[in-house]
Structure formats: C-alpha cells, structure tokens
Design a protein around this nucleic acid. Structure first.
Length: 919
RNA sequence: GCCCGGGUGGCGGAAUUGGUAGACGCUGUGGACUUAAAAUCCAUUGCCCGUGAGGGCGUGCGGGUUCAAGUCCCGCCCCGGGCACCA
C-alpha cells in the first residue's frame, strides 16, 4: 500500500515508509548470507544534548546512499549505528544539574536516534551499540586487559593540563592556546600518576600497515609524520673528568660528527648534575628552575629565542678526541631521542642560531656539491648532503657513505650504534573523570601481588603481565592486579556529586565503599572493605583505580562489535569476524587521523596479534567528508573614528569595529566585494564554520520539516564533492525540492491516479531511451566513486527530458525511480508502489544499461581553425578523414577564417575534433 | 618555517583525465497564468564590442610544451587545514 496522498505530501509519505522499513526490518544485516557482504561505516556520533547538526546529516547521508546502492547491487549490507556516549559534556551537564549521566545519555540517544530515523537511513537498528552499556564496557575493559597482559599498559607520572579555576584536570582537546575551552581559564602543567599505553611499541607496525590502506594520501602522510620515524645513530661521548659516565646522543647526521662544537643536554637530563662544575652550579640550577616553570606553550611558541647555560663540563668527541663544552638548553627535549645532542652549528639551523647567540665556534664539515661546482663556498648553515671536509680520514667521502662508515667504525669501538627514533609518544590513557570506563585493576601490596603471582590456579593469572605494573605511594609499593574476566564489567559506582574533588583526582576517589575492597584471589570476587572482612577463603585488601578511560577507548573497537553486538561470550565471534570482518568503507572527519584512527589501528593490531580478529587493519578504505560552513558573511570594518575602511586591515583587527552587511548591501568588484553605499570600500566576504556562538547554525530538523528528508538528503549531496568543505546556502534547496515535486507530477496526475503520459508499451522514444541508458551508466559509475553531486545533476537532466517528452514508457519511469532511490528513498518507494510494483523498491535489482542503446549513429565533430571553434559537423559514424575535411572546409565560417591563409596541416581525431592549422 | 589540500560566472559547482570551458542548480532579469499571492511554465543570465550575423577576451598571476592546456612542465601570489626547536 502507498499512502494515497494526492500531492507530494512528504510529511505524510516519509514517516509512513520509515515505519514500514523498521517493521519489515528491510535493512537487517543477515549473518552469513549467500550474498557477498558489504559493511558501510561512518564514525558514530557523540549524542550531545543539542541534537543532530548539519555535519551529522551530511556525514550519514553519503554512506547511506552507498549502502542502499550496494544493496540494490546484490550485497548483504551492514550499516549500523551506535553512540560514543561517554564524554565530558554529559558529565559537565551532570555536575550542573545533578542528573545522572546515564539518564542524560539515554535522553540524548533517543533524540539522536529519532532524528536519524527522520532522515530515512537504511540502518540495522538491531545492532545499535552504546559505549556506556555495561555489556559494552565489559569488552572495552577486556581489551584493556589484553593490552595490560602484554605489557602495553603501564602507569607513570605524566604532566597533564590542570585548570586551577575549574579545580580539575582537562583533556588535551579541552585546552586551546593554553586556556580552558570552557570558561577560558588559564591552565598549567602538573605531574600526576597516569595510565599510559605503549603505542610506541607498535610504531613500526602502524607505519608498515599503511601499505595496505586505501586512504586519502594526505591522511597517510599526516599519520606518517605523526609517527615520525627517523633513522640515525646513537653516539657515545665520554665525559672529561667523569670516568664512569657516558653521554649518549642521537643524531641523524653522523657524517657531521667532526663539526660538533658543543653538546646540549635537556634541562631534565639525568647527567646534568654530574656534568655541572661547582663554579657553574648556581647558574645551572637557576636555569633549570626557570625552564621547569615554563609551560609547554612558552617552551614552544615563545621559545623562538633560544636560551641556555654552560655547565662547565666537557665531553670527548669519539672520532677525534676533541674536548667539547657541554651546555644545558631547553631547545633540546628530554622526551625525544636521548635528551641530549651533539650540536653541529655548521649544519643545523637551531644549533647555528644558538651558537651565534652564545658565540660558539661554527665549523664547516660538509661542502655543498652544487655551489662548490660553481666555485662558491658553501654558505652555513647548510643542511643538505654533500662532500665531507675537515673530517679526518673521512674527508672526501659523500655524506651517505660517510654516515655508514662512521657508524660502523664507532660500533666496532662500542662507541655508537645505528638507531631509529619515533616522534610518536606513548598514549596518555587516563582521565580524572567520573563518566568513563573504570580501569579493571585492583591495586594491592607487593607482597600480596607476589602471592597471587606464585599461586598456580586463580582467575587473576590470565591477564597478569610478565612484569608488574606498579607505583610507589607514601613509601608503599602498589601493584596492579587485573580484575578477573568473570567479574567484568567493573561498573561505575553511584556518586553523590559529579564535581571533581579538587585534588586532581576523579570523583571516584571519594567513593570509599567502591574504592576499598576485599579481593578473593581464588575466585576474583570482591566485597566492599567497609563490610566485615569475609572469614572464609583467601582474601586480600585492595583498592580500585580512581582514574577512568578516555573517550577514545570505546571508539577504538566499536566497529567490531556491530558484527556481533549481543554476544555475551566473546568480543566478537570468530565466524562473524571472518564473515563481516572490517568495514569495506569508513567515512569520517579528517580531524581524527592522528587520534581515533591511529588509536583504533593500534588496538586492532594488538587484537590481530593476539589472534582475536583476522584482519590486520581495521579500516582498509577511508574517506573524509568536508565540513559545512555557514552562509557567506560580509563584514564592513570601521576604524576607531567610526569611518569605514577597506579590508584587509593589516595587523591590529581589535582596533576596528565590525558591522555585518546583508548580501544585497554589497557587490562584486574585480576580485573583491565592495560596499554598495561606497564602492571604494572593500568588504570582507567569507564563510565561517557553523557554530552556536556565531549564530550561523542551520538545523537539519528544520529543513526536514520544510522540505522533507528526501529533499534534504539530495540537497546535501548536490552541494558538491563530499570531501570538500563548502559553504551552506539554504536557498539552494529549492532546486531539489522543485525536482521532487516535478517528479511527483510526472508519475501522479492531479486526481491522484497515474499520469496518463505513462504507457505500458516498451519505450518508443529513442532519444529518451538513449539518455536513460547513459544515465544508468553515469549514475552507476558515480555512485561507485561516491561522486554523488553529479548523480543528482544527471537525474535532473533525465527528468527534464522526461518532462518534455509527451509520452514514455512506465518502465522508463520505474528505472528512474530505482536510480533515484538511494538519494530520495521515500518518494521512490511511494511512487514505485503507485506504479503497481511490489514488494519494496529496495528489493529490486539495480538496473543495467545496455551498451547497444548507447551507440550513436552519427558523430558530432567539432571543427576548429587554429584551435578556435568555428563550427560543428554531424558525420556518419566512423567517417573518413577526407570526408570530414571536405565537409569542414565547406562551412562558411571556416572559409571566412581561412581567408588569405594557407593550410599547414589538419589534425583529425575521429568522432571528436578536426583542427585546421593555417598560416 | 615545514607538510598537505585548493584557487573555474553574482553563488554552489561540472568538464569522459590534453579535444566545444561554464553541465546541473541557486540568484538576478523579462514574460505567461492569477483579482492577488503561492505554486507552475517559457525566455534570458561569464565579460567586452556589435542592431544583427559575428568577433575579441576569459579557468589566481607570469612564462613554457602542444595542432589544441582548467587539465602537463617551470617560477610566483593568495586562501584553507595540519605540524611546530623531533636533533
């Protein structure tokens, strides 16, 4: 049954079919179907209180079209949806209102689900996952224990962002330019005990894995740079007067070793105290103190001006026994390489600058071959390769050879070795928050830990790492015991307040009955310590971890759970893992390349190495959508006297007042927008990111109400290539809305019956049939490439033609609906039914084009004279060169343009172009 | 500073990868229908010259290759995004 509506009443049609699809489970993904599978995934949303925004709408529409198209192509489609539901805004809201985050989350999820359903997505809602569900948390914790067991999780004192005004620790993404995102308060670095994941152990695998990924080139590059592999050597310098000590430095340029004129230790380097002489101790202490107080911001942004202090000590260059002064400077970072460098000011920009400032010697040891060939001497600093000079026995060697030879010689003397370094840091994996996954560990004393370790059979053994994870607190060593699998998930306790407790610890630190437990080492069970100590069994005291996991944890593996969302026994059933595997297509924002996408690849690779999943990479094919910007805004600038001035202002924008102008108050003049009132004044015209504070947000819900989901979907796709960010323009939706209304009238007559122009006979109109087959081909090809904007154009072209054709076949109309269906599924389904088709249009196989129908009997050949178009010929297919030439030269316009010239040659591309070159 | 993208009408964009630049749509203009509005339909809409047929210019700028360049090569400019003392 169709809706029976006479007009194109999308408000009636759309909910009708949405209900139909849900009730029929039209889009259920079938486990183990005969059909080939196709798994389409878009990054799941964080269900915020604001509901769906335009970004969501566009992000989920493109994959939905792909899914519906692939379904018609005969694939068994998996298009799931879920919720990244742990997160700070929910917790913040809980703090403000006292509402439990679980309640808030549930409410938001319901809003999101219903808004997504209003867009008519072909989602299998039976597979919905929510990262905050205890059933889901269980497996997040279980994966954490897999990492823990493999020594990939540890605790360390790490500097984190602390916001004194808010009394809490902030995540990196909550800090913008040294201020808190919320409230704009200053933040500072503070050292706190943190869980850290050893992603650096996987640096090489993550790098290698890129080879099999079909990702945007820029994203691969970004990730590669983020991992930042560099190859070089570690070189050992002895220290003058300190026989037992060695100073190890990392360098990528061992060929410049003879150019080292000083050494630099990072202020945090453990050898600083030893190297420093009494005479310089005070200066060094002062310098270290100042450096330690500097925030990262000052050490990076503001530290263009390098500073340092001489330690008084000297190192011995292993290649020539030269005495080299050792400096302390904070342009060397403790966290990279060995935290110490040999400075080669002749061939390193930073060292050059430093040497200039402190008047240290600069020595040339590499000659630039290019300038040398021109008879010029190499200008320093010179960073490139070349020929070694002033380098003892190595003089005359090319940089490449020199590197290898010096490293080999040093290695022979145990004074150096080849070395590989990565910029990638271990992953700070804990937050001092309530609304996150608790860490499934229990802290116990070293003695108790050793007891558990020694005992043969107990459920805690399964996840025990080879080396204990431990830290010292008040002189007591505590070790982390994993929670037994049977006890997972470890759920969050109820708390009275979600307010941070001000010490930098999470609200969990205040929940004693949850925090302090008795742990039964034979069963893994726990009871609150506040209860009477159990008398039976083998119980030890322990305390839980107060940190929780960051939001990334749940998103590192959600794509796996969709394949087997309700399995209580396993993260994913091995059979289902083999069948569905990983997404065939993953769509999401490029802002996630160095965080989510890297983290998830890491977790996945660990699971692969553990034999839990069968594919080494989680996202073989990736696409980023661009962001939707607000509508173009025009800004007129007024100087402090209130007079309009031309943009761009150059420099101090804050001195100027801004006035928003309407689009009809400006006009284009050359490359600029100018003010109509005074066209001398250039106005700024640009689109800004949609944001609440700018007030330029357009809500998809409003569009759906005014134009329907079909029009909204089509317009979002029509806007431009999905990868591009593009400005919004609400007016533009009229175009697709008209298109849909016109389509309706093509099929449905005024009285609600089928339009009489549709015939039952096969298509008689040859031109229309040709265009139809051309459209099938183009739509098919562009769907595959996700060039969805041009699909909409092509469908418009076809409908325009249909409208102008007095009568055509019902088959033509049906094929049109099928091509349209992925984009505008509601109207397609409705009209499909009206045409008497059953069952759902979604069960109809994708139309095939007939190449025979595309063959043209005549070719159109463009005629040019000297590359300029002067006419057009309609020639029989495969016309000979001579015929084309004769016909072309007969054209009056061609003759006119050949007047007084002689033909030099004639280019003929059959079926395409004929170019007469004449002088 | 370095690394990625990208510059095509008033606007969003298209162009089978070297072969008619501006498809499709929005906006604007003129018209039809209507008491009116909405909706719909028709024409027109890159710039300049010309009543017209037609001609010239034109894909950020300058050069080059080619019968032919939005597309390829060299050198710049501008915009967007990412990274930022990584030795």
């Amino acid at each position: 049954m169709s809706t029976g509506a006479k007009d194109y009443d999308f408000a009636k049609i759309e909910p009708y079919w949405q209900r139909y699809w849900v009730e029929r489970k039209t889009f259920r993904a079938e486990d183990f179907s005969e059909k080939p599978k196709y798994y389409v995934l878009s990054m799941y949303p964080y269900p915020s209180g604001n509901g769906l925004h335009m970004g969501h709408a566009i992000n989920y529409t493109a994959p939905d079209i792909l899914a519906r198209y692939k379904k018609a192509r005969g694939f068994n489609i998996l298009q799931p949806m879920g919720w990244d539901a742990f997160g700070l805004p929910t917790e913040q809201y809980a703090i403000q209102t006292g509402t439990h985050p679980r309640i808030v989350t549930q409410r938001n999820v319901e809003t999101f689900r219903s808004e997504l359903q209003k867009l008519g997505f072909a989602i299998d809602w039976d597979r919905e996952v929510n990262t905050t569900d205890p059933d889901y948390v269980k497996w997040t914790q279980w994966i954490f224990l897999q990492l823990f067991k493999r020594g990939l999780a540890y605790v360390d004192d790490k500097p984190v962002w602390w916001c004194p005004a808010l009394g809490t620790v902030l995540a990196n993404e909550e800090v913008i330019d040294g201020k808190s995102e919320r409230g704009n308060h200053p933040v500072e670095r503070r050292k706190l005990r943190q869980w850290v994941l050893r992603i650096t152990a996987y640096a090489e695998k993550l790098l290698r894995g890129h080879q099999r990924l079909d990702w945007p080139r820029s994203s691969l590059k970004l990730q590669r740079n983020w991992i930042g592999k560099s190859t070089g050597a570690e070189v050992t310098f002895r220290l003058l007067g300190l026989p037992g000590e060695e100073l190890r430095v990392y360098t990528t340029r061992p060929d410049t070793l003879f150019g080292a004129t000083y050494m630099v230790l990072s202020p945090e380097h453990p050898l600083v105290d030893n190297v420093t002489t009494e005479e310089h101790r005070q200066a060094v202490e002062n310098y270290r103190r100042v450096a330690s107080r500097k925030s990262d911001l000052e050490r990076t942004d503001l530290a263009k001006d390098k500073s340092g202090v001489f330690s008084g000590g000297y190192a011995i260059n292993p290649v020539n026994e030269e005495r080299i002064p050792v400096w302390i400077a904070d342009y060397v970072l403790m966290s990279y390489g060995t935290g110490a460098i040999m400075a080669v000011p002749g061939h390193d920009e930073r060292d050059f600058e430093f040497a200039g400032k402190y008047d240290l010697p600069i020595r040339k040891v590499i000659e630039n071959d290019e300038t040398a060939a021109g008879g010029l001497s190499t200008e320093l600093p010179y960073m490139g390769d070349g020929t070694m000079v002033n380098s003892g026995d190595y003089t005359g060697l090319r940089s490449g050879e020199g590197k290898a030879k010096i490293v080999a010689d040093l290695a022979n003397r145990q004074m150096g070795s080849p070395s590989v370094q990565y910029k990638l840091r271990d992953w700070l994996f804990s937050r001092q928050r309530y609304w996150g996954e608790p860490f499934p560990v229990t802290w116990v004393s070293l003695e108790d830990y050793q007891k558990v370790r020694a005992s043969e059979h107990n459920p805690l053994q399964e996840f025990l790492p080879e080396n204990p994870v431990s830290y010292e607190e008040n002189g007591r060593v505590l070790c982390a015991l994993p929670v037994a699998e049977s006890q997972l998930p470890l759920e969050l306790p109820e708390v009275e307040s979600y307010q941070p407790i001000g010490t930098g610890e999470s609200p969990l630190a205040g929940v004693d009955h949850w925090l302090q437990v008795w742990l039964n080492v034979d069963t893994g069970e726990t009871v609150p310590k506040s209860e009477n100590p159990p008398t039976e069994g083998n119980w030890i005291p322990g305390s839980r971890e107060t940190n929780t996991m960051p939001q990334w944890a749940g998103s590192c593996w959600y794509y796996l759970r969709y394949c087997d969302p309700h399995n209580p026994e396993a993260l994913i059933d091995p059979e289902l893992d083999r069948y569905w595997g990983v997404p065939d297509f993953y769509i999401g924002g490029s802002e996630h390349v160095t965080l989510h996408l890297l983290y998830a690849r890491f977790w996945h690779r660990v699971l692969y190495d553990a034999g839990i999943v069968s594919h080494p990479e989680p996202f073989p094919k990736l696409l980023h959508q661009g962001i939707i910007l607000g509508e173009m805004e025009f800004t007129l600038f007024l100087n402090p006297e209130g007079n309009p001035v031309s943009a761009p202002l150059g420099g101090r924008e804050e001195d100027f007042q801004r006035r928003q102008l309407r689009a009809d108050e400006v006009e284009k003049s050359g490359d600029n927008w100018v003010w109509k009132e005074n066209p001398e004044i250039i106005v700024e015209g640009r689109s800004h990111k949609m944001s609440k504070s700018r007030g330029n947000v357009v809500n998809p819900d409003l569009l759906i109400r005014n134009y329907g989901a079909d029009a909204t979907r089509m317009f979002l796709m029509f806007l431009g290539p999905i990868e591009d960010s593009k400005p919004w323009n609400t007016q533009g939706i009229e175009g697709v809305a008209r298109f849909l209304r016109r389509l309706w009238r093509e099929v449905v007559g005024k009285d609600g019956s089928i339009n009489r122009k549709l015939t039952d006979a096969p298509e008689q109109n040859e031109d229309l049939e040709k265009l139809l087959h051309h459209t099938i081909r183009k739509v098919t090809r562009d769907n595959e490439r996700l060039h969805l904007n041009t699909v909409v154009s092509q469908l418009m072209i076809l409908l325009n033609r249909m409208q102008k054709t007095p009568s055509y076949s019902r088959e033509t109309a049906k094929t049109f609906l099928q091509l349209l269906n992925p984009f505008a599924p509601h109207i397609s389904e409705e009209l499909w039914k009206r045409l008497g088709e059953a069952p759902s249009i979604n069960d109809a196989p994708w139309p095939a084009f007939d190449p025979a129908k595309l063959v043209r009997r005549k070719d159109t050949v463009v005629v040019q004279v000297n590359g300029k178009v002067r006419g057009e010929l309609r020639l029989p297919k495969g016309a000979a060169r001579e015929d084309a030439q004769n016909a072309a030269q007969a054209l009056p316009r061609v003759q006119a343009n050949l007047q007084g010239k002689s033909i030099a040659k004639i280019i003929f591309v059959p079926g395409r172009i004929l170019n007469i070159v004449a002088r």
